[in-house]
Write a protein that binds this DNA or RNA. Structure first.
Lengths: 209, 209
DNA sequence: TAGATTGTTAATCGATTAACAATC
DNA sequence: TAGATTGTTAATCGATTAACAATC
């Protein structure tokens, strides 16, 4: 009964949507309404909730406040979560400037880059020499890193991070990282996602036009 | 027998890995070896290939050149593919500078932003006022857009793009776009992916430590 | 009460994996 | 030939959906 990755991703989406509902002044939701906002079925919503022991009222739906609290408990958003960024190139520095993380109580506390010209300070966050990453990670007990380095060095850098104690990596390099069991890797490959959109556009085009 | 999204994503990964193999001087691969490099099973590789009518030699594996050609044919990489970028903020401008697309023969031919301070020229690419996007898309027959605007305006902008003739969107805004059938949307939500890594790191931590 | 919505079970669906006959 | 690898079928697995009894 271990919930799959997609189930967890949906919980995050529910949470996002619910904060927006709350801001709009809503107090309760029905599975049906929430499902609509996230683009899934109401069965799916109820199933997901029941999987995590979240329950509502048979006739009255779910209290948004209560729901948010439970979801945040599950997703671990009640304590601040610190991560480091490795690679402060184009993508890396864009991620440093991205304000969407703070909303989730996730903070990039430091960045690292091998290139001296990238080092210094970007916004509020220091960009250190890459050689210091292991020491920093150990000293601050950081468990998660965002990896935004060139593809050719990604595997090597990832191995160093794991050796330093990193347990989770959000990887933007377009390679499959070979990483020991027990370390979590999520990869985002922008080029492949775009390629995928193009594929389906062409495929549908051919079919319907 | 319509192959799913994940199957197509895997084709792209095979293709990426194969170009690297080729650069290394390899001429043929076995399903086993390719599987390893991409992190799937060899059954999966053979299944994917057979699904798209790609075949090898019973004892001699697959010719890399032939394979690459077939994959490129399927993924539509034999003609240049032009896309526009909407939203030239942090993430948007990082994407403009990203060189990973060119490798796949995908080109961002123009960018658009409502903020005059973002307009002008970034690298080789012009950043136009957002109001011009519809005309541009129509004139150049652009079918795919990368959407990197703030969450609050994403839905509205997406609707305008669809009205202008866009058939595919790679969406970076952290919202579920409600879009008419026949338009392809892939969403990349960086915060949710990071949240997901944190979730599993905490979950495994609790279990094993 | 009648009506609506949850929570859960069972059915369906699709995707992945295993296995093995064909064959190079 | 013997051995190895493909291509495909069947088995498995997991995730999604449908349906409906419980109940507010």
């Amino acid at each position: 009964m271990i919930p799959g990755r997609n189930a967890i991703l949906r919980l995050s989406r529910y949470r996002n949507v619910l904060t927006r509902f709350k801001a709009l002044g809503f107090v309760k939701v029905f599975s049906d309404y929430l499902a609509d906002a996230v683009g899934v079925t109401s069965s799916q919503v109820r199933k997901d909730f029941s999987l995590f022991g979240i329950s509502g009222k048979k006739r009255g739906g779910y209290q948004i406040d209560e729901l948010l609290e439970k979801l945040s408990g599950i997703l671990g958003k009640n304590e601040a979560q610190n991560v480091v960024l490795v690679g402060a190139g184009n993508l890396g520095s864009a991620l440093l400037k991205y304000r969407g993380f703070g909303k989730e109580d996730i903070h990039i506390v430091a960045a690292f880059d091998a290139d001296p010209s990238k080092q210094g300070r970007l916004l509020d966050i220091a960009v250190h020499p890459f050689t210091q990453v292991a020491a920093f990670v150990q000293e601050h007990g950081i468990k998660v890193a965002i990896l935004a380095v060139p593809a050719e060095v990604a595997q090597g850098v990832a191995e160093q991070l794991v050796a330093a104690g990193i347990k989770g990596i959000l990887n933007f390099a377009p390679v499959t990282l070979r990483i020991p069991q027990g370390v979590v890797v999520n990869s985002i490959d922008v080029a492949i996602e775009l390629e995928n959109v193009l594929y389906y556009v062409h495929a549908l085009q051919g079919k319907e036009a």
